[in-house]
Structures are given as structure tokens and as C-alpha cells.
Design a protein around this nucleic acid. Structure first.
Lengths: 233, 233
DNA sequence: GGCGACATGAAAGCTTCATGACATTTTGTA
DNA sequence: TACAAAATGTCATGAAGCTTTCATGTCGCC
């Protein structure tokens, strides 16, 4: 999945690129309209995220030109709070959805996924690992077909681990994913969430769902069901 | 499937034609009421999309004349923000649904599909969830076959949740759906409407119709009846 | 054994949500 | 237009649920 981000504000662009990168997207970035247009016309993305207020060539024009050049990928526009005229123009120019700055990563993720899902036609994305099923649209998790109630931080932690199943995820990375900027370091929140997840998803510890990798973080075990079987359950 | 688009604003007409084209419809277009009427009377479309504020001959008249000429295809009218009087007149003149400009392509697609489906006879415009039945054509809701009186905002909120049953819908998204344009987001209207819906549809709270997903929004529970049963009711 | 990294229960503190009451706006009717 | 009724929005308050911290215990590894 390849995305284009066109945003002139350094901080926001970095937030976007970093977060989307973490989500597993390949991201091209541009800081002004002209550069953005070059990318937009040159490649076929799965989604483009375009700020309206861009230097040199504004977002509206960018979108119009990209559409005129036959590009059909979905476009999400970013507008400043209160400038609804912008989003009107943006939608008219061919954008598919908008997001008002500043936004939460959570909201961004929901929109991005929705647009990509819709464009590609197929339905709600589920992550299945044996008895554990994660429905990323409903943001719910079930075990043996029974819903398991998770809080939003618990869910986000789990989803991130599951998306990167098999990899060791450091606590720093998890923290950065869960919280916007830098966050109090000497806290054991992550341990606490991991503990709660284990308790809710695997109360008797038979599944070995999340492995602790001392010094390196945690790992969502993609073959835990096989292991569980091997161990007699 | 052949559609007619009558809209004088260049940008919006292009948005419509392009998007509908992408969706696989054959689209005829007209930029004023007279031209539109010619098409409207000449052919049998599967759907016509008509702006109310048209030059030469306005949308209301166009619809009346087309109906008078025996045309029965569904008509979707477009109105500017806030001109509710328009949509009332439009519906009285024989339109089937309306959309407030500007609109999301997704919203457009939903309406277009709904109208075509409805007109072609098959496919029910009803959403059924056990004892709760939502008739999207009549915009009514019943519980255990008894009509439940909902106000229009209550209905819209419910319909959106029900159409996306099973998904977590954030309050931001709900707000954007209910109110076309900018709306102060430091209000708790959504909570209030959810509360009123719950009270009307499930006074004793036994159905668990709408689940609160703290921090993530609300979820219309697609299997609430199963749950209710499991709980002894 | 000792150190550091991780686990966990309990509780404080904070955020989000639910709700009744009221204010305001819209709509229907004379 | 004026008035009444209904619908929508706002506000304050209390409750519920979630997050974070803290204290303390456990485990792995040198």
C-alpha cells in the first residue's frame, strides 16, 4: 500500500508520515503543491492525503489536475478548523473525504482505512489468529466467537501487536504509537496494558498469546494456536 | 443503468458526472432547466439528479413537468445548505429524496443506490434487526411491529448507525453526517440523541441496542436480539 | 545472590458519558 | 403575525469507566 502525503507544515507532515509508516504503509511526502503534483501525477497511489492550504499550488488545484490527469485513487483533504469553505471546494474538486486539523491519529486511521477499503471494494478487514479474531472496523475482538470487551487503549495495543505479529515490538515503539508526542518515560503503562490483555484474552495463560522478549519488547505470537496444540491444548 | 444530471454549477456537475461514471453509470448531463427538461421528457432514465436552483427553468418546475409527462423514474434533488424550503417543495413536486450540497461522494452513492434499488422493486428498503425494523423508504421505525415515533434527527442518527451496524462510529463521524457543514464540536448533542433513541426504542435497556464504546463512539449492535435471548429475554 | 526488567493488585485521578431540566429554534395553525 | 407545540440544543451535575501511578512481588540472567 502506497500513500502520498502533501503537507507544508513540518510538524503535521512528520506526524502523518510517521504514523502511517507505523501502520505499514509506504509513504511518499511532499511539502508544497508543485512537488505534490509531480508525485500525484507520476504514480498510482492507494490514497493521497492533501492539505488545502499549500504554497505554490494549492490543494484544490492539485486535486483537479490530478483528476484531470486521470488519477482515480481516493483523496483525503486536510483543512484548518472552521474553514468549511475549503472542504466544500475540496469535495467539489474531487476529494473523497476530509479531516479537520488538528486531528487525532485514531480518526486519521479510521478514515484512511475506510477510504482504502472502499476503493478496493472488499469488506471489513479482520485479523484472524485461530480462536482470536480482531475486527478492525468494529474495533472489537472475539475469542472462540465470544466478544471480549477491551478498552480503547487495550484494543489499540493489541491491534498494533497483531498487525506486526511475529515481530518484537519495543515498549518505546508501542508508547509512541499509543500516544501522540513524547510521553512520560518512567511509567509502566505498557506493562499494565499487556497484563490486562493477557488476562482478558488468555486468562489461564495457555495460549501464550503475547510473549515477553526481555529487553526487546513484546511479540504477538502468530502461531500460538499451534503451540497451544503442541502443549496439549 | 442510465442517469440524468441537471446542475448548473460546473464544478458540481463535473463531480457528479465523473463519480457516477466511475461507478459504472451512463450519465447524460444538462446545465440548465430547459435543456434538462428536454432530456427528462425524452428518455426513460433509471434516476435523475436535479439541482433545485437552475437557470431558465427551476428544478421544481422541471420535476413537475416531467412527472406530468408520465415519467416515473426516481428523482434525487440537490439543495443548497439551509434551504430546507426547497427540499420540501421538491419532495412535494415528486422528488424521492434529497441531498444537501456539498456532499460526500459516499453519501451520494448511498442515495443513488438506494433509490435505484427501491425503484427496481426488488431489495427491501428495510433494515431488520429482530424486533426492530427500519423502513428507509418511509423513514419509520417500529419495534415489535409497533410504530415508534422518532424525530428526524433521531431517525437519521439511528439509520446511520444501523446501516453501519457492527461498526464503531465515532461521534465526529456522526456529527458530520447529521450536520452537513461546520458545527461546534464542543456540544453533547450526539450523546443527547443517543439517549433519546435508547429511551424510545429500548426503555428498560434490555435490548442493548446501541453500545457505547468509550473513546471510540457508538455501535449499533447487530446481534442484540441474540444477546437479549441469552440473558433470558 | 543480586540486579534489573517485568508483572500485578489496588486505588487515586481524570475523562467521557448519561441525563434531567431548561433555553432556543423551528414548525404548525389560526 | 401571533401563539402554541414540537423539536433541537445547551448546560450542569453526577456517575461510570478508564488510565496511570504506586507499591510490592516475581522472574531471568550474569
Amino acid at each position: 500500500m502506497r500513500l502520498l502525503v502533501v503537507e507544508d507544515e513540518e510538524a503535521i507532515r512528520r506526524q502523518l508520515v510517521e504514523f502511517l509508516g507505523q501502520q505499514g504503509f509506504a509513504v511518499d511526502q511532499a511539502a508544497d503543491g508543485r512537488e505534490g503534483l509531480y508525485f500525484a501525477q507520476e504514480y498510482d497511489y492507494d490514497l493521497a492525503i492533501v492539505d488545502i492550504g499549500l504554497p505554490i499550488l494549492n490543494g484544490i488545484e492539485l486535486i483537479k489536475k490530478a483528476r484531470a490527469a486521470g488519477k482515480q485513487y481516493p483523496v483525503l483533504i486536510l483543512t484548518a478548523r472552521g474553514n468549511w469553505q475549503d472542504k466544500v471546494e475540496g469535495l467539489e474538486a474531487g476529494a473523497d473525504d476530509y479531516l479537520v486539523k488538528p486531528f487525532h491519529n485514531e480518526e486519521l486511521r479510521a478514515r484512511v482505512n475506510a477510504l482504502i477499503r472502499r476503493a478496493s471494494g472488499h469488506a471489513s478487514p479482520r485479523l484472524e489468529f485461530g480462536p482470536i479474531v480482531i475486527d478492525t472496523a468494529a474495533k472489537t475482538v472475539s475469542r472462540n466467537s465470544e466478544l471480549v470487551e477491551l478498552t480503547s487503549y487495550e484494543y489499540n495495543t493489541l491491534e498494533y501487536l497483531a498487525v506486526h505479529a511475529g515481530e518484537a515490538i519495543s515498549k518505546t515503539v508501542l508508547t509512541e504509537h499509543l500516544y501522540q508526542q513524547d510521553f512520560e518515560r518512567d511509567s509502566n503503562v505498557i506493562e499494565v496494558f499487556i497484563g490486562r490483555l493477557r488476562k482478558k484474552l488468555d486468562p489461564d495463560g495457555s495460549l501464550q498469546l503475547i510473549t515477553t522478549m526481555r529487553g526487546r519488547g513484546y511479540r504477538f505470537n502468530p502461531d500460538f494456536q499451534a503451540m497451544a496444540k503442541a502443549q496439549g491444548n
